[in-house]
Each structure stands twice: as structure tokens, then as C-alpha cells.
Design a protein around this nucleic acid. Structure first.
Lengths: 207, 207
DNA sequence: ATACCCGTGTGACTCTAGTCACAGTATACC
DNA sequence: GGTATACTGTGACTAGAGTCACACGGGTAT
């Protein structure tokens, strides 16, 4: 397994343990790793692919939170697993995803005998917490055009490229807005030479 | 110390250790336990009093996140402490507060030798994460009147009473809105017999 | 080629919430 | 008592953003 490359901070002993108790699972593009109200029996470490996390509103609205990449872990899966609790998040595989499922019954051992593991868990939690706070900033303090810019930046950064394939409707959904509003705001971004718009595709110019 | 009563899940050995390495600190009403950009050298366990946590916007706006009560810990202080990182949160003592400061250099030992401690840390994080998600729900999916209702419920619940002393301006600040808007919405809640309004004070009727 | 679907562009309207100006009223402090 | 200082109430205006209706244009399937 390629654990060592993805988690260079783990020592060989920890990696051996993870390889022993963990199980590699595959998710097809578009499938759900996690659904609202579901319980966890494993912590999930992402080995390959990209996962999109949403918050789900009570009447089915969605709100984009953040992406998970390889080398990262689902913070909630680690904790909910520990506590056997559910959550109102949705995690969708937006590419084919390979993940390592570590059963919760090994958490005690991992936590207590592997310092790097608990550092990893805490750091995962902390960084997601911070990311959530940043999202909160956006919705609490900023107007739609600023939210849109922030959103686009995150998308571009996340794929480390300058071209994303997405429809205006999808953006509107992620931002819990409406297609017309997004279209108009995108036009404004295009006028100010920050992006280029084409069908199903946006290109970053100076964002 | 009253640690055993506040943290019944901790075993005597853990409590003894906390008593040995921790230091009780006092904060006056209105003082800041934590400021944006500040670094941590301790994990803070609240022994008595109430702490209000805000997110701070870039131009000085505030947004109310949640309260901390006795028996709880500041999630971020535990993690930031671990990582020696700062954060954009403000924590204000709204009553006199007594807290136990546990220096970060004991985190390794606590984590690895005391299962209840790491359960506690993870549970603290998980519950704050969930709380943050709920706040995010409110700002992402709901209109001001719904946010206000949610806010008021949390305030009433948090003091476990039906009367809070607060001005309309303070609520507006917490919700990043304006006084007039809050006044008008409160009037509506009064008309629908959900609350009673008097100067500096709101009473819950059927909220 | 034609018909259709999907994504996009646009104008008109409505509603929410923020702002401004100012009036009224309770409380505190001399 | 009287003045100053919060706190609250209200109308008028404005801006942002959501909705509705419909037009346009480029692909795709048959």
C-alpha cells in the first residue's frame, strides 16, 4: 500500500498496524460515502480521489463545506465513529475514491500507543474546524458576490488548476442561491476580467 | 478542588494528575479569555462561570457562536495548544469565570495514559463541531426572523430560565444585523405571544 | 434536417433587511 | 426636579438577491 507516501508523518510501526486492521474500500464517482443520519463504524482515510462535503438543510437544501483530498481524513468519521453518533453531513465522491476504513474498535490502541495518530486526529479536527469557521465568515459577513469569489477561489485552488467544469446551477446549489443570481454575478466577474465563461466551464484569469 | 463533581467521567488518578499540573485561573466578568491571533500555552477547562464565544470578522464585526459552561472545555484551546497555532475567535467571560489551565506539555501524557481524557477531548471537539454546523445552518438557510428565534432559544436554554437581560443592540451585534431590524422582529415575536419585551429584558412565553 | 434539451442571458417584479432620521420613554446621576 | 444618557419605536428610502417569464443558442438523437 502507498500509506507511507500519503502519510509521511506516520512511523513504520503505525503504518503496519493500519495496514493490518484497515480495509481498502472503493467508491464510484457520484456515490455517497456518508449520508445524513448515518452511523459510523470506521474512520475513513482518503487514499485517492476527491470527496465533496455538504451540509444538508432540513428541506433538502445543500451547502458546500469543503473538499477532502488524498492524505486527509474525514474528521467527523473519526469522532462520530468514536462516539457512535450520527451527523447531518453528506459526503459525495466526485471522482473515483479509494479509502482506508479503520474500524473504531482500534481507536483506543491507536490513540494511546501512537502519538502521531492522535496528532493526526487532532490536526484533522482543528483544520476542519478552522475551515468551517471560514465558511461561516463568508455566509455571516459577506454578500453574494464575495461568497461567489471565495467559492470559485476554493474550487480552483482545490484542483490546483485554472479551469473548472461546472454549471451555474451547480454553483447556485452549492451556495444555496439561484441560477440567475449566479449567472449575473459571473457576468460581472467576467467584465472585470477575473474569469472567462464558457458553457459548462469557467477559467480563472486573475482571481 | 471540585473536579470530581464537574468531570464525573474522570477517574481519581486522572483527576489527581490534573490537580497536580493544572493551575486555577480567574477571569473577571467582561474580560477576554482569548483574543484573535493569540497563541495558547494551556488547555482551558471551565470550572465555574459562563464564557461567550464569538467569531471575529475582518473589519471588527462579531458573530455569536456558542457559550461555554462549567464542566466544558474550550475545544480550540485544546487543539491550538497542541499545535501552537492561533485562531480568529474571541472568548469573553460574561460572568466571573474560574478555569483550570492545563499546560500543553502534559498533553502527550494525558492523551496516551488516560483514555477518559482523550474521550473528553474528542467529545468536546465533536460537540463544538456539531454546534458550529447548526449555526452555519442558520446563517446559510434561514432568514433573519428564524435566526433570531433560534438565537433566543439558545440564550434561554443556555441559562435554563425564561428571562434574559439583553438590549436589542446586543442581539443585533451577535447576529451581525442592525438594531432597528431586531426591534421590529422582536415586536413580531411579541405580537405572536412568543416573548414579552421590556426594557433590557426579554421573557420567554412560548418559544 | 428537425426537434428537443440543456445551459445561459435578461428584464420586470417582489421581498427582506439594512440605513437614515427622528420621536418617544425609561433610567441614572447630579 | 431636571438633565443627560441609554434604550426603544417607527416611517421612508435603498440595495441585494430571489422569482418568474421568456428568449436564445449550441449539442444531440432520431
Amino acid at each position: 500500500m502507498e500509506l507511507h507516501a500519503l502519510f509521511p508523518q506516520f512511523d513504520p510501526e503505525l503504518i503496519a498496524l493500519l495496514e493490518k486492521v484497515g480495509q481498502v474500500v472503493d467508491f464510484e464517482e457520484g456515490s455517497m460515502l456518508m449520508r445524513s443520519g448515518q452511523y459510523f463504524k470506521n474512520s475513513m482515510l482518503i487514499l485517492d480521489g476527491r470527496v465533496k462535503l455538504y451540509r444538508e438543510g432540513n428541506d433538502g437544501e445543500e451547502f458546500f463545506l469543503y473538499h477532502l483530498e488524498k492524505g486527509q481524513a474525514c474528521a467527523l468519521s473519526m469522532i462520530c465513529a468514536t462516539k457512535n453518533e450520527s451527523s447531518a453531513l453528506k459526503a459525495k465522491a466526485i471522482t473515483h475514491v479509494k479509502a482506508l476504513a479503520v474500524p473504531i474498535q482500534h481507536m483506543d490502541e491507536l490513540m494511546q500507543h501512537h502519538r502521531q495518530w492522535y496528532y493526526f486526529v487532532l490536526e484533522t479536527y482543528r483544520s476542519r474546524f478552522e475551515e468551517l469557521l471560514e465558511v461561516l465568515d463568508q455566509v455571516a459577513f459577506h454578500s453574494m458576490d464575495q461568497k461567489l469569489e471565495f467559492y470559485l477561489k476554493r474550487q480552483f485552488d482545490s484542483i490546483q488548476g485554472d479551469k473548472i467544469t461546472v454549471t451555474h446551477q451547480e454553483i447556485a446549489d452549492d451556495l444555496n442561491s439561484s441560477r440567475e443570481v449566479i449567472s449575473r454575478l459571473l457576468k460581472k466577474l467576467e467584465s472585470s476580467k477575473k474569469i472567462a465563461i464558457s458553457r459548462n466551464e469557467l477559467t480563472r484569469l486573475s482571481l
